[in-house]
């Protein structure tokens, strides 16, 4: 061994399974805290902020599965939220399909579209994949915005509500987020977690080892898209309005910043960061509106200097503290 390579650190001295479990527990603890917040936060505005945070937490978690674990850097997570929102929105608006059924349909439709996209881009990587998914995202948004006869374009499509109480919505979103968190955990703890990361690191080596790369890559696209579509559909009925703005590239930028700041390829980081980023951004909005400037700068700084994100920084701090 060369003298430069660092000594085994305690965090990596664990099986990745154990690592995932630690992350899962921390994320669950964070969800427990979020569950208690409405006791203190009576303010409808801040409840709304937290609800939107959870919307983004689902999106960040779903995209992290695809980009952070499977290494497929798609630039379309917000698009799938938009697709989910329009699925239930159109079904509801035109056929009076009840929201719950519409949400299920949204999960299925966005998952299927994700599967098709995943199939299509199977052989693309790096800048080619980023460009293809980016143009997919823009095409979808342009179609939604310009099909005015059907979607009413930028005016937005009014859809039915689901719950009357804001606190009810709060716990519905929290439930959805927690269910997804558990699902992702079970998935990542299984062989799927190993396979996705293997594909991220070296596709050829993964195939040599017998991993069915086509299947797992497509599955990652479909699952991540379904999660996004689910979030979008919930949001549609929460806001009672669906607009093409859900699919703006800037929304993807926000999701990306949450994942990067939280720590790509960790279960807890992106989800927790979604709350931090969004709540902080609402607060910054109040004190001068610099929120997006700050986050964009943070993304660049984190990517440049702290690639492991907040989660990595926290783990390093814990290690130092233990060693002291």
């Amino acid at each position: 061994m060369t003298t430069q390579s660092p000594p085994p650190s305690r965090a990596s001295a664990q099986l990745s399974n154990t690592k995932t479990t630690v992350e899962f527990r921390v994320a669950l603890a964070a969800m427990a805290i979020v569950a208690l917040l409405p006791l203190g936060v009576g303010n409808a505005y801040w409840l709304g902020v937290l609800i939107v945070s959870m919307y983004f937490a689902i999106l960040a978690g779903g995209w992290n599965l695809l980009a952070g674990y499977a290494g497929q850097f798609s630039l379309a997570p917000a698009t799938f939220a938009m697709i989910g929102a329009y699925t239930t929105g159109l079904l509801n608006h035109y056929y009076g399909v009840p929201p719950l059924l519409g949400i299920v349909a949204a999960i299925v439709v966005s998952g299927l579209v994700g599967l098709l996209l995943g199939r299509a881009v199977l052989r693309l990587a790096g800048p080619y994949l980023a460009l293809t998914t980016l143009s997919f995202a823009e095409i979808m948004r342009l179609v939604a915005a310009n099909s005015i006869d059907i979607t009413r374009g930028d005016l937005g499509l009014g859809v039915a509500g689901l719950l009357d109480s804001r606190v009810g919505w709060y716990y519905l979103f929290l439930g959805a987020l927690t269910v997804l968190l558990v699902l992702f955990y079970l998935l990542l703890r299984s062989k799927a977690g190993l396979f996705l990361q293997a594909i991220r690191d070296d596709e050829v080596a993964a195939r040599r080892a017998g991993v069915d790369v086509v299947f797992w890559k497509t599955a990652a696209f479909a699952l991540s898209a379904a999660a996004s579509g689910f979030a979008g559909a919930l949001y549609a009925h929460f806001a009672e309005l669906v607009t093409p703005e859900l699919g703006l590239i800037a929304q993807t930028g926000l999701i990306l910043s949450m994942v990067v700041i939280g720590g790509m390829g960790t279960l807890a980081g992106p989800i927790i960061a979604a709350f931090l980023v969004y709540v902080l951004s609402e607060w910054l909005r109040d004190v001068g509106g610099y929120q997006l400037v700050v986050f964009a700068a943070l993304v660049v700084i984190f990517a440049r200097f702290f690639r492991e994100g907040l989660w990595g920084l926290a783990m390093a701090a814990v290690r130092r503290w233990r060693q002291a």
């Binding site: 980009a67 290494g71 850097f73 630039l75 990587a125 790096g126 800048p127 980023a130 690191d201 800037a250 930028g253 990306l256 910043s257 990067v260 790509m264 001068g288 509106g289 610099y290 997006l292 400037v293 986050f295 964009a296 700068a297 993304v299 660049v300 990517a303 440049r304 690639r307």
Partner: peptide, 25 residues
């Protein structure tokens, strides 16, 4: 090496958001 493509997308994307919003403010 491994992170190269991701890094490039993230920083240029982040820079784009940064400049747009900085000018906006």
């Amino acid at each position: 090496g491994l992170m190269r493509d991701e890094y490039a997308v993230i920083v240029t994307f982040g820079l784009s958001l940064f400049l747009i919003n900085l000018v906006d403010k």
